[in-house]
Amino acid sequence: MHVVLIAAARFPLAEPFAGGLESLTWHLCRGLRARGVAVTVFAGHGSDPALGARELTTRPLALSSAARQDVSMAPEAWLAEHHAYLQLMLELQARDDVDVIHNNSLHHLPVAMAGAATAPMVTTLHTPPTPWLEPAVSIADDPRSRYVAVSQHTRRAWSHVADAEVVLNGVDVERWSEGPGGDALAWVGRLVPEKAPHLAIDIARAAGRRVRLAGPVGDREYVETMVLPRLGPDAEYVGHLDTSGLRSLVGHSAATLVTPVWDEPYGLVAAESLACGTPVVAFDRGGLPEVLTEQVGRVVAADDVAAAGAAVDEAVRLSRASCRRHAVRTCSVERMVEEYLRVYGSMSTLRGAA
């Protein structure tokens, strides 16, 4: 079997990952190859050299002076991304050596042009509906296209335009190995308003525990206004860590706080925490309740700092071994890869022009 994986053009497939989309595509490529599947990857600049990815780029984007004088011209970066996907889909239209195209991008063109390719396409829905992708899914009536959502929550969000099945994201449970635990709490993610790390600090103080925060600063104004003033002896920002550093941080923590103020499509941080044996306290947002059970964490009402603070005492008493077993059974890359192979197999009869 030969699978083409299409990633997003804006971020590389490299650690530390920009998000769940990049993590899924990187792990899926490696997992498929480990099972003897031939994989070609198209991805953004700076991707992991070990993947051998072909860069999503133009050849180059050549605009005449006349075209540049058009006052309605879209930003050049947008045009470059658009034409990179156009070039890719035109190439796939002419290839007969591909069995399945797996689209993990958030761009509308792969979906819109799927019917022109010889190989059938499955698109993973990683996000809530977007104004670019939603109409493409609605309009592109290709009987050879399939859709997969990363959670039941995400499936429901797209159900008005797509009949998707669910394959939960996976984490590498070998790399995210069980840790000894500790006294402090952990928070991991991009420091942006929708992830609300400032609420994690408030929750930790309500619970009477220290908290350590790790992740890239995605919104400096928000961090300077809402996060930095809250730091102190009981709340520390430890920086943007690699996977090894994050594993050590989470594995040496009593519990992980997951505090989104938007609906997370899945809940990758929660899955990684459980793989380390560390229980989770999370807001009831998006797909997070699908990752957690009463045996491995606590889910409280969205944005309820007091309830989350009270739940910490319950969570830290949960069995770390149970958290680890739950992650291995339901959150592993191996489980994810096997489920995608099943999806690919169900599409084997769809090859050929529509």
Rank of each mutant, 00 (worst) to 15 (best):
T225S: 13
A184H: 15
L185H: 05
W176C: 02
P193E: 05
L199K: 07
V192Y: 02
Y237R: 05
V166N: 13
D183N: 00
W158E: 00
R210H: 15
R210N: 12
E165W: 08
W187G: 09
H160I: 01
E221W: 09
P180K: 05
D219H: 00
W187N: 13
H160W: 14
G218P: 04
I201Y: 10
R175Q: 04
G181K: 11
R209I: 07
D202N: 15
D163N: 12
P180I: 05
H198L: 10
L231V: 01
P233Y: 08
D234K: 08
G189M: 03
V171R: 03
L231K: 00
A206D: 15
P229Q: 04
L199W: 05
G181E: 10
L168G: 14
G170V: 01
V167M: 00
G182R: 12
V217N: 00
V188M: 14
Y222E: 00
E236R: 09
S177M: 13
G182N: 09
D172T: 01
A200S: 09
G215D: 04
V171W: 00
Y222P: 09
V211K: 10
R230L: 13
D163Y: 10
G208W: 14
V211N: 05
W176F: 01
D202K: 13
G179P: 04
R205Y: 01
G170Y: 03
R212D: 11
P216T: 06
V171A: 01
R220I: 14
L228W: 08
